[in-house]
Nucleic acid binder design. Structure first.
Lengths: 201, 201
DNA sequence: GATTTATCTGAACAATCGTTCAAAACCAAG
DNA sequence: CTTGGTTTTGAACGATTGTTCAGATAAATC
C-alpha cells in the first residue's frame, strides 16, 4: 500500500501537531515515541517526516508557536494607567492559559528537552513576556500607584501564581473561571498597594 | 571481574540515589537511562538492581522521601497566631525548596511518569502539605486576622508563587535569599489583609 | 585459613527507539 | 486517459532501552 484515500497535508499536518501536543503534555516529550504520535494520527511513523524534519523540531515549533501567540495576545491588551493594565494582564493570563492547558504545560515542562539553540529562542520569548508584566510594575511604581520593593521579583511572583491556576482549576467545579479571575485579581491588587487600608472605607 | 575493591552498599546506595536525583532533575526521568545513572555512580548497570527493584521505584522513592521530609519539616514549625504561622510558612517554604532544587523539580515535573498507585501516594502527600497552608488561612479568616475570599484558592496561589522562586533565584545574584524571603513575605502579607476598598463588588 | 555473605561484572535478552527510503497509490491538471 | 506531483506504506537500519543472571571477586565471619 501507499498513499491512502482522502489523505491531504492540510489535514494531516494539523493532526500531527495536535497529537504531538496532547501526547507530549500527557506523557512528556521523552516518553512519547514517534510511533505513538503516528498511531494517534492514524498513519505510519514514516509519514510524520513529511511534516517535521525530526522529533526535536516538532517539539520546538509547538513551543515557539505557543509563545508567539502569547506575545501577540498580550501586546493587544489595551493601554491605560498601570492599575488597569495590571488587572487586564491578570485576567488575560488566567484566561489565555486556561484555554491552552497542553501548550502551557509543554512550554513550562519541556524546556530541558530542547537543544541549546532552541532553548535560547524559547527563553528569549519567555523573557519578553515577563518583561511586559515587569513594565507594568515599574510604571506603577514610577507613577506612585503601586508600592512595591522590586518590580522584577513581583513579576516573577505574579506570573508563577497565575500560571499555577492551571494545576488545580477545572471548569465545572466549585468555582467559575471568572470567579477565579476575580479572586486572583483581588490578591494581586492587594499585593501592589500598601497594606493597612489607607486608601478608603 | 566481579565485586570491586572497597565496594559497600552503604556507599553505593546513596550514590545511586544522588546520581538518579541529579540526572532526573536535569534531563527528566524518561530521558535518563539506567546506564547513565550507573556511569555516574561508577558501576555497571546491573549493579543498580541491588538498590532498586526497577527504575520506576527509584523515581517514586526519591519523590516520596522528599515529600515526607517536607511534611515533617512543616509540622515542626512553631504554633502561634495565624499571621505568625503564615510568615513562618512563607520563609520556610522558600528556604526548604531552595536547599533541594533537584528534589523539588522532580516532585513537580515527574508526576506524570509515576505509575497510578505511586501517583496517588505522592498526590496524597502533596495534598497534606497544601492543607497546612489552607488551615493557616482558614484559621486567620476565622480569627478575623485575614481578609480572604477563599482559603483554598489562596493556598494554591501562594504555594505556586513561592515555589516559583526556584525557577529564577540563584545565590550570588542581585538579591540574597533572605532579601527574597522578605520580599515574598511582604507580598503575601499584603495579600491577606484588607487594602481598603480593593474587594470587587 | 576456611567459609559464608555481599557486591559487582559482563554478557545477553527481547523490545523499542528515531529515522530513511524505494515503491506504491492517490489526487489534480491538462 | 495521461502525466506529474503528493502522500503514505512497510520494511529496514543501527542504536539503545530496562532488566536478568551466572559467575567472579571482595569483605566479613568464624
Amino acid at each position: 500500500m501507499a498513499r491512502t484515500a482522502g489523505s491531504h497535508s492540510d489535514v494531516t499536518g494539523p493532526r500531527v501537531r495536535a497529537a504531538a501536543l496532547s501526547l507530549f503534555a500527557r506523557h512528556g516529550y521523552a516518553a512519547v515515541s514517534m510511533r505513538q504520535i503516528a498511531r494517534d494520527v492514524g498513519v505510519q511513523a514514516g509519514a510524520l517526516y513529511n511534516y517535521t524534519p525530526d522529533k526535536q523540531t516538532l517539539l520546538f515549533e509547538l513551543m515557539r508557536d505557543h509563545m508567539v501567540e502569547l506575545l501577540e495576545a498580550v501586546d493587544g491588551l489595551p493601554a491605560g494607567p498601570p492599575m488597569e493594565r495590571l488587572e487586564h494582564f491578570v485576567r488575560f493570563h488566567i484566561a489565555f492559559h486556561h484555554d491552552r492547558p497542553d501548550a502551557v504545560f509543554i512550554a513550562y515542562m519541556e524546556l530541558r528537552n530542547l537543544d541549546p539553540d532552541n532553548f535560547s529562542e524559547i527563553e528569549a520569548l519567555r523573557s519578553r513576556y515577563e518583561a511586559v508584566l515587569e513594565s507594568i510594575f515599574s510604571d506603577g511604581v514610577t507613577a506612585q500607584a503601586f508600592e512595591l520593593r522590586d518590580a522584577k521579583v513581583a513579576a516573577m511572583a505574579v506570573i508563577a501564581m497565575l500560571t499555577g491556576v492551571n494545576t488545580w482549576f477545572r471548569a465545572g467545579g466549585r468555582l467559575s473561571l471568572s470567579a477565579v479571575q476575580d479572586h486572583y485579581w483581588d490578591m494581586v491588587h492587594k499585593m501592589v498597594v500598601s497594606a493597612g487600608g489607607s486608601i478608603q472605607p
